[in-house]
Design a protein around this nucleic acid. Structure first.
Lengths: 225, 225
DNA sequence: GAACACATAACTGTATACAATACTAATCAT
DNA sequence: ATGATTAGTATTGTATACAGTTATGTGTTC
């Protein structure tokens, strides 16, 4: 019973995935120019499919294309990160409101169960793993809103602030979990206003720490391991 | 004193603009396959820059890329249009809330003046022109929110539902204008809740007419002029 | 007449070659 | 030294060629 359609993805597609990953984790430094021949050789492909992948990443905001000068990594500016964070809050607040109308009892129960299983007890996890867990929760909420378009956009926004979210994730585990719980409880009660308010507080809490977090991100990026 | 930097845009860039325009106005039929050699010849370019433009349009949701089968026009399904419309409402409601905090007195005054100048008197305009005017108003509001990321996304969402918005724009001019006015008045009073509520009502009004409007869009698309 | 198989044509995906532009560095003038 | 100028190099942007896949049409069988 194997429905895994292997699809034999094209070179351009796998390049897209790989390079996107590099962009997310700032393997390219902010503002850095990307040498096509170099990167193509390292990825074991030709420039044509690579450039197609790079173009997609430009459209998604991971890279910038400057006329005649090639592709560059996006900047890491506090202002942009602030806007993305604000955007994220807007999307998630809207999502949890819609989820209050759309989600089935079972789905909400499953979400609560997920929180139980990943409780605050086991905190031997890396910052990366915590972000992944956190992202999973938020994307699950978004899925309950039944709006694919908003889902896709949130996924993109999250990817663009992912690196940056690593920073302040340590040590916040227990609070996060508690807040997630409170959100799902409001969701269970179908109290859209309460859920929205809690979600907003949960995300907006960090808005004013952004400048500091961006600075810390820089050190992570330029620190040679 | 001519600061117009002509930038001599690349072939890929101009192709992107031209093909995007075609996609917005459904010059490609929903689900239709796009023949690269054909289109490249018609646009007077080679396939390489064309494919780069097409890849960007895939990332932006105007086209779909199917493995080994090429590029296709996006579908025009009621469900997707509904989601985009819902998304638009979310973005604009958030924008008007932020605008209440961020906009200067002068900016709000200018917006009101814009409404005065394009008043309900001159209704000898085409449906297209009305949509453009309507879009301008809404994008102006978004600009006042001071969030470029949300702005860009709204622009994308608007472009994808633009064709579809033509449909019910006729004859609604006076109501639209009145509602826009009411929104700006709430904005002037810095009443975020009222502004948000009015904006939401203004957009959500049409959510239930979408299936009908999509049907009408089909007839527009397939009607040979 | 319908369904299948096969051959042919058309088209996509990728590599490579070339032209135009931007960058680098060395030279010269101040 | 410092700044401008220019020759040379590296790199991007585009065209073209080719390989592999998908679509098409014909013929054959039932």
């Amino acid at each position: 019973m194997d429905h895994s359609e292997k699809k034999t993805q094209s070179r351009a597609e796998s390049l897209y995935i790989a390079v996107k990953d590099m962009a997310i984790s700032f393997k390219f430094k902010p503002g850095e120019r990307i040498n096509e021949v170099d990167l193509a050789r390292r990825m074991g492909a030709s420039r044509t499919p690579l450039r197609e992948a790079l173009n997609r990443l430009v459209a998604e905001g991971f890279l910038v294309l400057k006329q005649g000068r090639g592709f560059f990594c996006r900047d890491l500016k506090p202002r942009e990160m602030f806007e993305l964070y604000q955007f994220r809050a807007v999307l998630e607040v809207a999502a949890v409101r819609l989820a209050c109308e759309q989600a089935t009892e079972q789905e909400v129960a499953e979400l609560m169960q997920f929180l139980d299983e990943t409780g605050p007890d086991e905190d031997g996890q890396t910052s990366e793993e915590l972000v992944t867990l956190d992202e999973y929760f938020h994307e699950k909420i978004m899925a309950l809103s039944r709006n694919m378009e908003m889902s896709k956009t949130l996924e993109n926004v999250n990817a663009r602030i992912k690196y940056f979210r690593w920073v302040d994730m340590d040590s916040k585990r227990k609070t996060t979990q508690k807040e997630h719980r409170a959100i799902v409880e409001a969701l269970m009660a179908r109290d859209a206003d309460l859920a929205a308010q809690r979600m907003n507080a949960h995300i907006a809490k960090r808005l004013d720490q952004i400048t500091a977090a961006v600075k810390e991100s820089y050190s992570r990026i330029y620190l040679v391991t």
